[in-house]
């Protein structure tokens, strides 16, 4: 049986600059993958490549979704399978939170379910009170949650998230991480997320994929990510290894 998502020796170049080099990995249905690596390692490029969002890129190798080449998917079909929340920086769409979330239902063929999906997305992200505010009037963290809510409203089996907690304070980040974990565990969502939190894959018992200068330096269980010198080599930096005082899970701190 084929994996849900599989990269086979995948490389990608933009303007003849190879951003991703010979990446291979597999994600099965219901797994939680954290993509980590230093700035400029190609994390966001990889997550965008999984959604075929990079125009005019030269690629070799391939990415398979449900055993089919990603290039063969019509856009709408892809949007029914993978929900996407980009980083919240840059251009701010001129819509209210409600309008923005509703727009993400574009690929759905069931218009009658739009209101339900909107209400659920607002409720899961606790954005009900901000539903009629424009995105421009929200804080970075609130906007990030609106992006996640829009991805949730797509009601897809896979969520692809690009640094979903980067603008959030510790409490909101913790709540959002818990929400994602809950969706992963109870609704069997497959989650692929770019994160700068190195402890993320260990704490949620998921998979970790480490990139360094566009190449894969580790792919495997989050629990074993801290074995050896994987992080030290990826980040060219030393880390202190310790155990979580309550769960006893392995943790690292930058030294």
């Amino acid at each position: 049986m084929s994996a849900l998502l599989e990269a086979q020796d995948f490389s990608l170049a933009i303007n003849n600059q190879w951003i991703l080099k010979n990446i291979s990995f597999q994600v099965e249905s219901g797994q939680y993958l954290s993509i980590i690596g230093p700035n400029g390692a190609g994390k966001s490029t990889l997550i965008k490549a999984l959604l075929r969002l990079i125009e005019n890129a030269k690629t070799t190798g391939r990415i398979l979704l449900l055993g089919r080449d990603l290039k063969d998917f019509p856009r709408k079909e892809l949007a029914r399978l993978i929900g996407y929340a980009p980083q919240a920086g840059g251009w701010i769409p001129p819509y209210t939170v409600r309008e923005f979330i509703t727009l993400s239902r574009y690929s759905s063929s069931e218009r009658s379910k739009d209101n339900l999906a909107l209400a659920r997305a607002l409720s899961l992200t606790s954005l009900e009170d901000l539903a009629d505010r424009t995105l421009a009037t929200l804080s970075g963290g609130e906007r990030q949650k609106a992006y996640l809510a829009a991805a949730l409203a797509q009601e897809t089996p896979i969520l692809a998230l690009d640094e979903p907690t980067s603008f959030l304070d510790p409490r909101r980040a913790f709540e959002l991480d818990n929400l994602l974990l809950d969706l992963h565990q109870n609704q069997k969502l497959t989650i692929i997320t770019v994160t700068h939190d190195l402890n993320h894959p260990s704490l949620n018992a998921g998979l970790a994929l480490v990139l360094k200068k566009g190449a894969l330096s580790y792919f495997g269980e989050g629990q074993t990510l801290f074995n050896g010198q994987i992080l030290e080599e990826a980040f060219d930096h030393q880390f202190v290894h310790l155990a979580h005082p309550k769960s006893q899970r392995a943790l690292v701190l930058a030294q």
Partner: peptide
């Protein structure tokens, strides 16, 4: 409407942007 949100976001929601 989706293109106003940005071409990348529009594509991720299912719009054949080009």
């Amino acid at each position: 409407d989706l293109l106003v949100s940005g071409e990348e976001l529009a594509a991720s929601r299912g719009v054949e942007v080009k």
